[in-house]
Design a protein around this nucleic acid. Structure first.
Lengths: 169, 169
DNA sequence: ATTGAAAAAGATGGCCA
DNA sequence: TGGCCATCTTTTTCAAT
């Protein structure tokens, strides 16, 4: 089954912090051989705990300075697939969260400027049977760098302090 | 200045898809030498376009099956720093988006079950001068794998179809 | 499941066009 | 900048425990 032990959790934390870490570095940190670490990481991917590795990008530096969340309301009971289909029409949509209750979905949007954002929202409104939108402009974002994927059996009331980000060599 | 050309954008797209790609593989795809690709990626990090690399994790498989967004409303005009400080108290908070208007913030939460989520929300309510919360339970998530960090000068009206995920060797 | 070692692949840094 | 080359590090596989 999906058995993930403490060492696996340590590896997950290390890879969350820096996905391009070498197996050798991780091996040293968790006290295993390089081969063992590779096997574990391969297994974490195989069982679907690790779904991928991605680069984090500062979109503002690329000219996409506007970030927003838009709540979508649909007429009647739109199925999830329908919601995702309609919200996918705009390439500026980064992510879609279908939700229970009101609203029906929350979409994350990246745009170059307010005019562009307005166009995206218009597109969403026309894309399906969207009955209403409400948009939240994001001013500032804070993301937890040290995510704590501790086992659910251990209640983990507090966060562990995390060593500073590894400086680039 | 922050000059990012088409090849840089191609590299960003490749690293978004798989942050653990080798320089050799990227070099082949963009038609440059390995050293040139490394130089470009190093530079993209130096100028802050790439802010890091991270592993994508299926938290449900780790026993954290509940995902939610909670809107937070604060009394008066709470400064951003205050909002982030209060929302950070709970380790289950994954991200905080401070927003303009109403609500004042949107926080992304991961919890083991509904009871746990309830505890987190209670913690948030008590953490600062939070006057109200509204929670959206996430049922399904769709994330754009192929983000299009195209230059803002090129309007890019449509999405390009994206080849299937590279199979593991 | 882990280790250790050997072969293959990749990463780095210097130098010149 | 980019390419090339020499060197060093890392990955990957395999036999053995």
């Amino acid at each position: 089954m999906t058995e993930v032990d403490d060492i696996d959790h340590a590896l997950l934390r290390l890879l969350r912090q820096d996905a391009r870490r070498t197996f050798s570095e991780m091996a040293e940190k968790v006290g295993l051989s390089v081969a063992a670490v590779k096997r574990r990481v391969d297994r974490l991917r195989d069982i679907g705990v690790i779904t991928g590795f991605t680069a984090q990008i500062d979109y503002a530096k690329l000219g996409w300075g506007i970030e927003a969340f838009t709540e979508l309301r649909y007429a009647g009971s739109a199925p999830v697939s329908e919601i995702i289909r309609t919200a996918t029409v705009a390439p500026e949509v980064q992510a879609i969260y279908t939700t229970a209750g009101d609203p029906d979905a929350l979409v994350s949007i990246r745009a170059r400027d307010m005019r562009h954002l307005q166009q995206v929202i218009d597109t969403l409104r026309r894309a399906g049977n969207v009955t209403g939108t409400k948009t939240l402009m994001v001013m500032d974002v804070w993301t937890r760098s040290d995510v704590d994927p501790s086992p659910p059996t251990r209640p983990s009331a507090t966060t562990r302090p995390q060593p500073a980000q590894r400086p680039r060599p």
